[in-house]
């Protein structure tokens, strides 16, 4: 027999065997294994539960990174700190500079009332803004691909020395980077969970196959094809993995759903969850678990069958 012949136990044939119902009761040839079955279902459920959280983390951090990136990228502030007698003139100069700078959609000076609101958390509601040397703030909205920040900074420096361009780059980038890293961590966690599930199912399948060495020998003796033997095991483990993962996924989704609703004050933590169509993503977890069970058991069955002629 050539070594490569076992490869004829291909995925397509096995998948077809899995999809068919089992009217002949071929699966019965594998004896029920109580504790192995229960442990496989439990492990798949626990892994799926964790996967739901990892998925929620990945999605939430993805949203966060996108939001920070978008919101902060679109707004730029020009702060004017100048002596009182020059304030109006420098403000007018800055407005003119901004008006003539390509890539700027809009520039508007924040009224005193809004500046008061910004200062309120630090100075209280009764702060006399008019007597304080408060800088003027001009909010700038970018258009299209934005403007050349460095060129604008130099121009402002030349025409209005008290004006400082703040494009939030300094503090925005680390935040966006952190959110991006968290998203990667979420995805890596998902991969680790998938790999761990695969390892656990492989161990369980190998244990079941080893315990059923006599079954396999009897089946080969009476003329069972490898595909028939493998399918009986693969079908069983695929179903266990998918069923366990379905239970874990439902529990995980309930846990996510029961988290406090999104709150501005809560920030990131209360935003951990799924939104809209995002609730459909966890549905993939039992499918992925079934696929992992399928591949892991198939590989274990192939190795085992190789040892039995």
């Amino acid at each position: 027999m050539k070594h490569g012949e076992l490869k004829s136990l291909d995925l397509a044939a096995l998948w077809q065997g899995l999809r068919r119902p089992d009217p002949m009761g071929t699966d019965r040839v594998v004896p029920p294994t109580g504790i192995t079955a229960q442990l496989t279902v439990f492990a798949a459920a626990a892994m799926a539960f964790l996967a739901v959280f990892a998925l929620a983390l990945a999605l939430a951090t993805g949203r966060l990174a996108e939001r920070w990136s978008n919101e902060l990228a679109q707004t730029v502030t020009v702060r004017i700190s100048a002596p009182t007698e020059q304030m109006d003139q420098q403000t007018a100069t800055v407005m003119e500079v901004l008006r003539t700078t390509p890539g700027i959609a809009d520039a508007k000076q924040l009224p005193d009332s809004e500046v008061e609101k910004l200062l309120e958390p630090w100075f209280g509601p009764d702060v006399p803004v008019e007597v304080l040397p408060i800088p003027r703030l001009i909010e700038v909205s970018e258009a299209g691909e934005g403007f050349d920040a460095e060129a604008l900074r130099l121009r402002l420096q030349g025409e209005a020395p008290g004006a400082v361009l703040d494009d939030h780059t300094r503090w925005r980038e680390p935040l966006v980077r952190a959110a991006g890293r968290l998203r990667v961590l979420g995805l890596v966690s998902l991969l680790l969970i998938a790999a761990t599930s695969g390892a656990m199912i492989t161990l369980a399948a190998k244990a079941a196959l080893a315990a059923n060495g006599q079954v396999i020998r009897v089946l080969r003796l009476i003329g069972a094809r490898d595909i028939t033997i493998a399918t009986a095991f693969v079908r069983r483990f695929t179903r266990r993995a998918a069923a366990g993962a379905a239970i874990g996924t439902v529990l995980g989704m309930i846990a996510i759903w029961a988290l406090p609703s999104v709150d501005e004050a809560g920030g990131f933590l209360t935003g951990l969850g799924f939104q809209g169509w995002g609730w459909l993503w966890p549905v993939l977890i039992p499918l992925a678990a079934g696929l992992i069970g399928f591949v892991a058991t198939r590989s274990a069955a192939l190795r085992m069958l190789r040892e039995v002629r």
């Binding site: 076992l6 004829s8 080969r220 003329g223 490898d226």
Partner: peptide, 22 residues
Amino acid sequence: SRDGIAALRRKVGVVHQDPQFL
């Protein structure tokens, strides 16, 4: 092939001194 051997065994019945069952 392995499937060929399986087919051969369906044409040959085997009884051992200590027969194995499920």
